[in-house]
Amino acid sequence: MSGTSLDGLDVALCRVAGNGPETRLEVERFKTLPYEDSFRNAVREVFARRQIDFQQLCLLNPVIGLQHGEMILECLTEWSIDPSGIDLIASHGQTVFHAPRKQHGLAGFPNATLQIGDGDHIAVKTGIITVSDFRQKHIAAGGEGAPLAVYGDYFLFSQKDKNRILLNMGGIANFTFLPGSLDASLVFTTDTGPGNTLIDALTRHHFGLPYDENGSIAANGVVDEALLNALKDAPFFEQPFPKTTGPEVFSTDYVKNAMHLAGRNAIDPKDLIATLTQFSAETISEAIGNTMRLGEVFEIYASGGGAHNPVLMGAIGKLLGRNIRLIDELGVAGDAKEAVLFAVLANEAVAGEAVHFGGKKGVPGVSMGKISFPG
């Protein structure tokens, strides 16, 4: 898995048995291999931009595939595992643009998303059958291409008589509601808005750091209420659930526009990070609160980079009046969760069948992924 933070490639070695709700999965090894700055900067030239150098995009498609293949082989060597012992690689690829219809607003054009890092190149490089490009089938079947976590969340983490919310805070935050009844038709998933994307981007800009480690910058800032209200005044937050979004909307330009609306020509960088952290916390909390039935009892488990930010986690817990636990308590390390969920999707592609989620919007009952053979 390579996310919008572009920090590196998450590689999870999983042993899987069964399929669908009978899926059993054990994470045997996990490692995040950091990207070199030159690689990260090359991707940022085409990442979430409407105007790009198309030759750069074309060249990066095989380059990312080859880079990911090399990193996978590096992990297998470190773990003393022969590639011939691996059945499948599940590759998410690198998202470079996400354009749901509600976001682009162009008549006659469907939902769309683009991930690069060609699966054929990974398969040939590693000699391992590769399943990739999962999001296109989701869109073809009527979804928006995200969030896809719902499928693995339902198969791996549902438990009888326990309502659970699985909150993932990557660049964009999303959550899945898992009913204690185990009724797939009641499963719900949606993006909520920014997770870490704005916090990371402005931390890089003002402090030269990749992210706000332990929320230390936010903890020393003061929330600017006028700016916070301007950040929350966006069409995305008025759209009905479920919905998806991306850094194409929530960018540094979005923050600049909000500052203009709030009458802030300048702001102390610490206060800006504190405000952006509160912005993520409030939009996450409001999305969860607005989609749960009044009085419904549920547990919340968090994963993703945001789960390591105690300021963000504390604000969400305070707003919801609940203890936010870590997904690690359910047997999968939070940092590995996204990679693990795509392993589940790859397993479904070759060994499963479509699971019906009641025909609800945003969760088509389909098998996803394209298969690439090494030769």
Rank of each mutant, 00 (worst) to 15 (best):
T32R: 14
F236I: 06
G362H: 12
D10S: 12
G369D: 05
A140R: 12
G305L: 09
Y154P: 08
Y151K: 12
A141F: 07
Q159I: 00
S303Y: 10
I273T: 05
F175D: 04
I371K: 06
T95A: 04
H205S: 14
E338M: 04
M292G: 01
F109W: 15
F373L: 15
N61K: 04
L345N: 04
Y35C: 05
A234G: 00
L156W: 08
G365W: 11
Y254V: 00
G215K: 05
E296M: 14
E213G: 01
Q56H: 07
T291G: 04
C75F: 09
V187R: 00
E70K: 15
T32N: 13
F157S: 01
R44W: 02
F357I: 09
A343I: 10
S251W: 03
F357V: 08
E299G: 03
A107Y: 10
V11L: 14
P83I: 01
A48H: 01
V43Y: 04
N290T: 10
G65C: 06
S38N: 12
D10P: 10
R164W: 08
V43C: 09
Y35R: 09
P374S: 08
D224W: 10
V16D: 05
P374W: 07
N309I: 07
L33M: 11
L25T: 06
I288R: 04
A226N: 14
R15T: 13
E329A: 13
F157L: 13
H260D: 13
R44N: 12
E225T: 14
M368W: 04
R101T: 11
L13T: 05
S158C: 14
A48N: 11
A226H: 12
K256A: 15
G145E: 04
G142F: 11
A90K: 03
V187T: 10
I267D: 07
T176G: 02
N229D: 15
E78H: 08
K318R: 13
Y211E: 09
C75A: 15
R40S: 14
H92V: 02
C14S: 12
L182C: 13
T32K: 14
